[in-house]
C-alpha cells in the first residue's frame, strides 16, 4: 500500500464542488450570524452603563424584553451542541410546526437548514464577542461622548461602535474559522459539502489516506484564506 497521488487527482473535481458548497454555507452563515450577533449583543447590553446608561419610559420596557430574549437565545445556543441544533432545524422543526400551529409539510432543504444553523449558532457566539468588545471600551470615552450632549444612537454608532469593532476582529476571525469547520457536521443532514464529498469518494475507492489528506488540505486552504482576510482587515482598521 502506497500513497497514490492519482486518487487525489480523480477526486479533485468532486472535492472542489464540495468546497464551493462549504464556502457558500459559511459566507451566508457568517453574514447572517454577524447581523444576528450584533443585534443580540447590543440587546444584551441594553440599559447598562456600557451603552450610555438606563433608558426611561416605554423604551425601557422594550429594551428589558430585548435583553431577556437575547440572554435566553445565547444560553440556549451555547448550551447545546451544533449537531443537535442542525438535527432540530432539519428534522424536528417541521414536526414542531405541525404540532403547534397545525401546518403540515413545512420543511427546509438540507442547504437552507445548514445555513440557518450556522447563522443561529454563530450569532450566539458573535453576540458574546460584541458584548465583550463593547465592555472593553473605556468608560471615560463614553462619558466624554455623553458630556458633549450627543444622543445614545450617536454614542453607539460614532464612538462605541468603531472602537469595539476594531477590538472584535481577532475573536471574530476565530469564530468565522470555527463556523467554517462546523459546516462539516452537515454531513448528517445530507448536504453535499466538502466532508460529505470526501466520504462518498472514500466509500467508492476505500483510499482513506489520500482522500482525507486531500480533504484536510482543502479545509486548511479555506481557513487560511479566512485568517489572511481577517489579518488584512485588522491592518486596514489600524
Amino acid at each position: 500500500m502506497s500513497f497514490e497521488f492519482h486518487y487525489i487527482v480523480e477526486a479533485f473535481p468532486s472535492l472542489i464542488e464540495g468546497a464551493k458548497l462549504t464556502w457558500y454555507i459559511t459566507i451566508f452563515g457568517i453574514i447572517g450570524g454577524l447581523t444576528l450577533g450584533i443585534v443580540a449583543g447590543i440587546l444584551r447590553l441594553a440599559g447598562t452603563e456600557a451603552v450610555g446608561g438606563e433608558s426611561h419610559g416605554i423604551s425601557r420596557v422594550f429594551w428589558m424584553i430585548g435583553q431577556k430574549c437575547s440572554i435566553t437565545y445565547i444560553e440556549l445556543i451555547r448550551g447545546t451542541p451544533i449537531i443537535v441544533q442542525a438535527m432540530f432545524i432539519y428534522f424536528a422543526l417541521p414536526m414542531l410546526i405541525e404540532v403547534s400551529i397545525g401546518v403540515r409539510g413545512v420543511r427546509f432543504d438540507g442547504l437552507t437548514a445548514a445555513i440557518i444553523t450556522i447563522i443561529i449558532n454563530a450569532g450566539a457566539y458573535i453576540a458574546e464577542i460584541v458584548r465583550g468588545s463593547v465592555l472593553s471600551v473605556n468608560k471615560g470615552l463614553i462619558e466624554a461622548g455623553m458630556s458633549m450632549g450627543i444622543t445614545r444612537f450617536q454614542l453607539i454608532t460614532s464612538i462605541i461602535g468603531p472602537i469595539a469593532f476594531k477590538r472584535s476582529i481577532p475573536p471574530l476571525g476565530n469564530q468565522f474559522i470555527i463556523s467554517l469547520k462546523d459546516t462539516s457536521l452537515f454531513i448528517v443532514i445530507g448536504v453535499g459539502e466538502l466532508t460529505r464529498q470526501g466520504q462518498e469518494i472514500m466509500a467508492s475507492n476505500f483510499r482513506a489516506l489520500e482522500v482525507w489528506s486531500a480533504v484536510a488540505v482543502c479545509y486548511l486552504v479555506m481557513t487560511g484564506s479566512l485568517a489572511l482576510f481577517m489579518k488584512y482587515l485588522e491592518r486596514r482598521v489600524e
Partner: peptide, 17 residues
Amino acid sequence: IRKEVGMVFQLFYLFPH
C-alpha cells in the same frame, strides 16, 4: 444642559479612532 457644558477630564479621553 450638556450641549452648554464642556468637560475636560483628567485622562483626556480623546476618541482614539
